[in-house]
Amino acid sequence: MKVLLIDDDLELARAMQPVLKTYSIDLDAAQRPEDGLQKLKKNSYDLLLLDIMLPKINGFDVCRHVRASAGVYKHIPIIMLTARTDLTDLVVGLETGADDYVTKPFEPRELVARIHAVRRRFGVPENEPGGEHERREASFCFQIDGTHLVVDRVNARVYVGRANVPLTSMEFDLLVLLCKEAGRILNRDDLIFALQGVNRIYSRSIDAMIYRLRHKLRSVNSDVDFIRTVRGRGYSLIGQRVVNDMAGA
């Protein structure tokens, strides 16, 4: 696995490289945001580690830039690194499109675990509970007024009609959860617990992710909304469940 670190702390990069190497993770590093963005354009990485406190451009703006870019790297999983524990910073990081965050100082094993957890979101874990049932649920398909929503868990792809809808790993996770519980109203606590645990994601982030997810799904057909908001109660995925012939396409 090849990971890019954008952090102005040169000593951190030097210390992390041999440690991550023992976990089969090759770490490349850039001290300046502009250098990191150039590396993203020229090289292929599996994940981006992004410090919030950067010179000239902060990590939030770098994250926004990556997600808004036209390059293939716009969908790269992003883990934010922060020395601050302010709730607002953590929420903003997730709202800008980051997939997770790690608070400095951190243990190498914690970082490695977060890296693998984020990467697994784009596939079905081999040890996921459910056995045969989960294999049958490797994809989901719903339709409203002839418009189909297909969620292919194996290839981590989402389609509205025949159009591919790129999502961040956390947005994809959220959509899979809604599909699993289609028709059921899930409140914020349900979603928080199922996605990451109460200590790592917050109600405001859930609302922001639902907003982004809904916006992306409706970008193909604004007349069809697969996510229903039940005021004061939560969110639900709606639509008629149908047999899917697009998964793996």
Score class of each variant (00 low, 15 high):
residue 1 M to V: 15
residue 3 V to C: 13
residue 10 L to D: 14
residue 11 E to C: 12
residue 22 T to C: 14
residue 22 T to Q: 11
residue 23 Y to Q: 13
residue 24 S to P: 12
residue 24 S to W: 08
residue 25 I to G: 09
residue 26 D to V: 15
residue 31 Q to M: 13
residue 34 E to N: 15
residue 38 Q to T: 15
residue 40 L to H: 12
residue 42 K to R: 14
residue 54 L to V: 09
residue 55 P to Y: 06
residue 57 I to C: 11
residue 57 I to Q: 10
residue 57 I to D: 11
residue 61 D to H: 09
residue 67 R to N: 13
residue 68 A to M: 13
residue 71 G to R: 12
residue 74 K to G: 15
residue 74 K to H: 15
residue 78 I to R: 00
residue 89 D to M: 02
residue 92 V to K: 02
residue 94 L to P: 07
residue 108 P to G: 09
residue 111 L to F: 03
residue 119 R to N: 14
residue 127 N to Q: 12
residue 128 E to T: 15
residue 132 E to C: 14
residue 138 A to V: 12
residue 141 C to L: 02
residue 143 Q to W: 00
residue 144 I to L: 02
residue 145 D to E: 06
residue 148 H to V: 07
residue 152 D to L: 07
residue 155 N to P: 09
residue 158 V to W: 00
residue 160 V to A: 01
residue 161 G to P: 00
residue 163 A to V: 10
residue 167 L to R: 01
residue 173 D to L: 06
residue 174 L to E: 01
residue 175 L to D: 01
residue 181 E to Y: 08
residue 187 N to A: 08
residue 188 R to Y: 11
residue 189 D to L: 08
residue 190 D to E: 08
residue 195 L to Q: 05
residue 197 G to V: 10
residue 198 V to H: 02
residue 200 R to H: 05
residue 201 I to F: 01
residue 205 S to Y: 01
residue 210 I to A: 01
residue 212 R to F: 05
residue 221 N to D: 04
residue 226 F to Q: 00
residue 226 F to N: 01
residue 227 I to T: 00
residue 229 T to S: 07
residue 229 T to E: 07
residue 231 R to G: 13
residue 239 G to I: 02
residue 245 D to Y: 08
residue 249 A to V: 06
